[in-house]
């Protein structure tokens, strides 16, 4: 193992420990809810990151995969009594398969046209589910209550088990991305993002790698859909396919900094509490002040730090280093 690897592994362990310790301070149900939302959107942001941050296909329709995943596991559990865990696996696979089929025509779209396409996809799927009687149409499905526990993936007394489940999902996703970034796949994704023509000229099968990126991203997003379905115990088109989910996913990743592993986690850790707290404190006034404050944060970020929090950290790090070198040089001259 090289020094870099040891340092990164130490960071991951430290990150996991911090994650495990959070619940000590989060004792109320509301603060636990915020924690759950942070890990959920961190995973969603990372999934988006694979597709958009690395492979360069900006999606604003992740809700399509999210809702699909939620519905797959819910339908399986309501109609066939399948365990939600198996349902989550099925949701991941089904969403990935769906995304591969959809991805074939979509991967031919470039840049903003891809993004527009994904918006349309999100809206279309929602309409389909709103009119599909078998899955409850606009009223959706209620997941029947069961005894709480990991077997039923339902926890009524405390939200913490949900948090730990989400954290495990997050750590798995991060581990996957860590390996991906250092492998052929990660390099090929980035090459496609930077310049598709150069990539294919160097032997990269761009269609295949784009489809892999879309499928992996969608699969993880679908599993998150199952997670939220089990968290709220009902699925409904307006809730699961809501366009704001797609936007929030992209926001979290861009706010934190896309194209690197830690960005979306940072973005979620900052944006989700702001979003939930302003909603809880100011949302009831009916004036929309909560959304204004939330929006102002995003505007400030876009104006002053378009590369996200990670870009900001890098810039500050570089300027500190430069200052230290200047000081070192001055000292040399003095002596």
């Amino acid at each position: 193992m090289q020094r870099d690897d040891i340092r990164n592994l130490a960071m991951l362990v430290a990150f996991a420990i911090i994650g495990l310790l959070f619940p000590i301070v989060a004792t109320t149900r509301f603060s636990q809810h915020i924690l759950v939302m942070v890990v959920l959107y961190a995973v969603l942001g990372e999934a988006w990151n694979i597709m958009a941050g690395y492979a360069g296909m900006v999606s604003i329709g992740q809700a399509a995969f999210f809702g699909l995943g939620a519905y797959v596991s819910s339908v399986l559990s309501v109609k066939y009594g399948v365990s939600p865990w198996l349902g989550m696996l099925c949701a991941g696979l089904a969403t990935a398969a769906f995304a591969t089929v959809i991805g074939l025509p979509f991967s031919r779209l470039r840049g903003r046209y891809f993004a527009i396409g994904t918006i349309a996809l999100g809206q279309m799927i929602k309409v389909v589910f709103e009119n599909w009687q078998w899955v409850g149409a606009a009223t959706g499905l209620m997941i029947p209550l069961a005894n709480q526990g990991f077997a039923s993936f339902q926890f009524h007394a405390s939200k913490l088990p949900y948090y730990y489940t989400g954290l495990a999902l997050l750590l798995l996703t991060l581990a996957f991305m860590y390996i991906m970034e250092r492998s052929k796949m990660g390099y090929y994704f980035k090459a496609i993002r930077e310049n598709e023509d150069v990539a294919s000229g160097l032997g990269v099968n761009r269609t295949a790698y784009k489809l892999i990126a879309i499928a992996v991203s969608a699969g993880i997003t679908g599993m998150c859909g199952t997670f939220l379905a089990q968290y709220s115990l009902y699925v409904e088109p307006e809730y699961m396919f809501n366009h704001s989910i797609s936007v929030t996913i992209a926001l979290v990743a861009v706010f934190g900094g896309s194209g690197n592993i830690i960005g979306p986690v940072l973005g979620s850790a900052i944006l989700m509490p702001i979003s939930e707290l302003t909603r809880a404190w100011l949302g009831s006034s009916g004036t929309g002040i909560d959304l204004m404050i939330y929006g102002a944060f995003i505007v400030l970020m876009c104006v002053y730090e378009p590369e996200g929090l990670v870009g900001m950290a890098r810039r500050i790090g570089a300027s500190i280093k430069a200052q230290r070198e200047r000081r070192g040089a001055a000292r040399c001259q003095n002596s």
Binding site: E194, N195, V198, S200, G203
Partner: peptide
Amino acid sequence: NAICALGVARTFQVVQVLQGMSALENVMV
């Protein structure tokens, strides 16, 4: 990509590199 895999490579008239990646990473692709 199939032609490149068979052993025919080309450069571009207007120089085309993967701008955001390091020189080494470019070649690694």
